[in-house]
């Protein structure tokens, strides 16, 4: 379906949503490779939504912030909505003080709420049924 991951960051697919996460140990080059890999997956798999879990990220500097903003814009051009979920409070405070607002990037408190915003609801119904609803 796709070429082997170039960065070691797993990108999972749930219906038409791609789920992935960022780690601290990503250097600049790996971050850029990750972005292109994610865009490739959006295009080839026709994803409508992308959830990026950043709850493991201990810092976001202007480079990572810009990566997230560019990634969001590019994904939107490819027809997918990006939600960045789980930013830690110290990271949010630092970003706000840096003056970076992540313009255009949608955020959610955690992965669960991010998925809900992308149309996935926690439901007592068996998973198959939810899946059925989502299928186009």
């Amino acid at each position: 379906m796709s070429s082997p991951p170039a960065t070691g960051v797993p990108i999972l697919r749930l219906g038409d949503v791609l789920v992935t996460g960022l780690l601290n140990e990503l250097d600049d080059e790996a971050a850029l490779r990750f972005t292109s890999e994610l865009m490739e997956r959006i295009a080839t798999e026709g994803a409508r939504g992308v959830l990026i879990d950043i709850s493991r990220l201990e810092i976001i500097d202007s480079f990572v912030a810009r990566t997230l903003m560019e990634l969001t814009t590019t994904a939107r051009l490819l027809g997918a909505r990006v939600i960045v979920a789980g930013m830690r409070p110290p990271v949010a405070i630092t970003l706000a003080e840096l003056g970076l607002q992540l313009t255009g990037v949608e955020t959610a408190l955690n992965a669960e709420q991010g998925m809900a915003a992308l149309g996935w609801h926690q439901s007592p119904a068996p998973p198959g049924e939810v899946r059925h609803d989502r299928r186009r």
Partner: peptide
């Protein structure tokens, strides 16, 4: 309203 529909750019 819909949950988690927030974000700086919304």
């Amino acid at each position: 309203a819909a949950p988690a529909l927030t974000g700086p750019g919304t």
